[in-house]
Design a protein around this nucleic acid. Structure first.
Lengths: 198, 198
DNA sequence: CCTACCGATCGGTAGG
DNA sequence: CCTACCGATCGGTAGG
């Protein structure tokens, strides 16, 4: 629904966004120059400005798009009426899937968002907070129902979010099947590392 | 043991390193100018070069120091002869402690190391790899002994490393007592989120 | 530790 | 989409 949402971009604009996401991922936002980007797209640096307003617009556009993917995902999970354990599994799968499929957006979303400036920064942080709150609903429900143990919910939230964040940097994990990897991470978080001593 | 190890720095040099670590943490390496740093230290930009060789030296120095802390820590854990479960707990405590105590170095170590250039970059990556290998020794021993369940050890390693990484960005977690927070994270990773159904 | 200064590079604009 | 170009800022050096 944002002004820069994917489906409203022309093909060329889309191409520029994807090249920018790749460069931001590899070199970081500040280390990527508009000349780097132009070279990667195959036009002169000044020609970029026929398609985009500024370098900053690229960054915030990428971050908002990725954030929207997470928001849509968690809302679909909450509204479908599975068991709480299953919802937590789905939440982990959502993270694994986005990390594997949308690798350029994901790294920028995780690492480079802090270079967004106001007023977009506040909007972005609000979006991120809304997402975390939605995740918290699942975690807290599980504790209320007695399905989950009573651990500081912030610790749990961050364990989930961060246990999938490194995937994007590991070739080994990117090529792993989403279902297998998702189950391994879910299993670790839900059942723990210790062998059951029955 | 590195040439830039903390104990070999003069007080002024030390002051510059700490100011740099804080700025790199807050704005990122590329967005921090030597003029920013000079202002923070209270001298003219060019005067910085009486104490340090280059901006890059600051970055790699900070990263190597933090890496050394981790290496020393994990080696102490391995060489002391506790149970495997206890060693894993100590490993998580090590991460919590460094994240809470050495907050400026830690963020730079986690986020900004990729701006190190060769030949230091290779050295840094080798150091990081050595640390991960040491951690793997603990995880794999636990699985061999049958104490830990058989989960992809890379998944486990990253869950541990990343489950403590976010601490540095949370005021709430920085002010929490190390022992309490360390136990909560250890408990989650060792026993899982699910309530035992006895 | 300072003044003075350098070449390189930056994001972006004018005008077509 | 290009040529030509701008003011600002960068990391770093010379010389004292």
């Amino acid at each position: 629904m944002t002004a820069t949402a994917t489906h409203t971009r022309s093909t060329r604009k889309q191409h520029i966004y994807e090249a920018a996401a790749t460069l931001f991922r590899d070199k970081g936002y500040n280390a990527t120059s508009m000349r780097d980007l132009a070279l990667s797209v195959g036009i002169e640096p000044s020609s970029l400005y026929s398609h985009i307003k500024s370098k900053e617009e690229l960054l915030s556009g990428i971050c908002f798009d990725c954030g929207q993917q997470f928001l849509d995902g968690v809302r679909a999970i909450i509204s479908d009426q599975s068991t709480i354990e299953d919802q937590l599994r789905q939440l982990i799968f959502l993270h694994v899937k986005i990390a594997q499929d949308d690798i350029t957006s994901m790294t920028v979303f995780n690492d480079e968002w802090r270079h967004i400036t106001e007023p977009e920064l506040s909007l972005f942080l609000r979006m991120r907070k809304k997402y975390e709150d939605d995740c918290m609903v699942i975690i807290n429900s599980g504790m209320d129902e007695g399905v989950f143990r009573n651990i500081d919910s912030h610790v749990v939230l961050n364990a989930i979010i961060n246990s999938t964040q490194w995937i994007q940097r590991s070739k080994r994990m990117l090529s792993k099947e989403t279902g297998v990897l998702g189950n391994q991470i879910s299993d670790l978080i839900l059942n723990g590392l210790l062998q059951d001593n029955n």
